[in-house]
Amino acid sequence: MSEAFKKVVSKIDPSIGIVSGLVLLLVIAGFFVSDRFGTTQNLLNILENSVSLGLASMGQTLVILTGGIDLSIGGIISLTSCLTSGVINGNSSLMFPVIAGVLLLGIAIGALNGVLIVRLGVHPLIVTLGMSMVLQGVTLMYTLEPPGAMPLSWDLVAYGKLLGVPVAPLVMVLIFIAMWAFLKKARLGRYIFAVGGNAEAARLSGIRQNRVVVFVYTACGFFATLTGLYLVSRMGIGDPRIGGYYMLSSITPVVVGGTILAGGKGGVIGTLIGVYLIIVLRNLLNFMDITSFYQWIIEGVIIIVAVSFYVERKKV
């Protein structure tokens, strides 16, 4: 029993251990800081607040695992959220076709990112930065204000409950588990690690790395669109500026969770815990009446501390 336990523990990446420990520490601290911290209401709040950041960081994790980066997540979120509420404009019969269309659009934008990176050979940072500007511009050309409205039924996505338990945070966790299994068990999942770990070796091993790269950016576009759709549900309306926050914030949980920017090492579970770390921290600081200004300072410090603790990969 204890042997088996030790074996399991030894398999866990140290970075995940560190981040989980920090989350735990924060939660314990929370109970001391405020009586309201431990209330069911607040704990559910934390879970709900983590959904959008979690979805956005999910896609970012896949991209970073290949050694890339996606700065266009914010642009995709803004655009898809506006298009959804703007086109539907309260008309529930339009809801499903529009949502399907928006999902396709997000996937297409992601795929375009991937194809441009592979075909033009331009660094992902530049391609997705350019794409982000294009998307932000298109969104602002479409609308400068939150457009249209969503049918009430779409609220269910963000606020739906099953037996008193909010569904969205649960679904998000399930998505993370599914993606964990995909990365672990599926061939394509392993290739993502291979391309990030040693691109030339991957090529020589007969892996079509271009396809892998296009896939991760496509998936990232998909997850960014999910984020946009979720936010539309939570706010009840799209917002042309809502994505800006996610452009760089989607990267923080990934790197804090132990995925290295060079690629090839890390995973989605670390990201999930990284998301909780940030959300719990924010929640806690709110209880301590510390304004968001100081929260930024703390977030910056956490990035540095976390990253400089993780040992970067040694080359074979």
Partner: peptide, 21 residues
């Protein structure tokens, strides 16, 4: 190849079957 074409963070089995799982 002369230079190693291995993936340091993957297991031996995964390396052996890389591209041919």
């Amino acid at each position: 190849y002369q230079e190693f074409n291995l993936f340091p963070d993957l297991t031996v089995a995964e390396n052996i079957f890389m591209g041919n799982e």
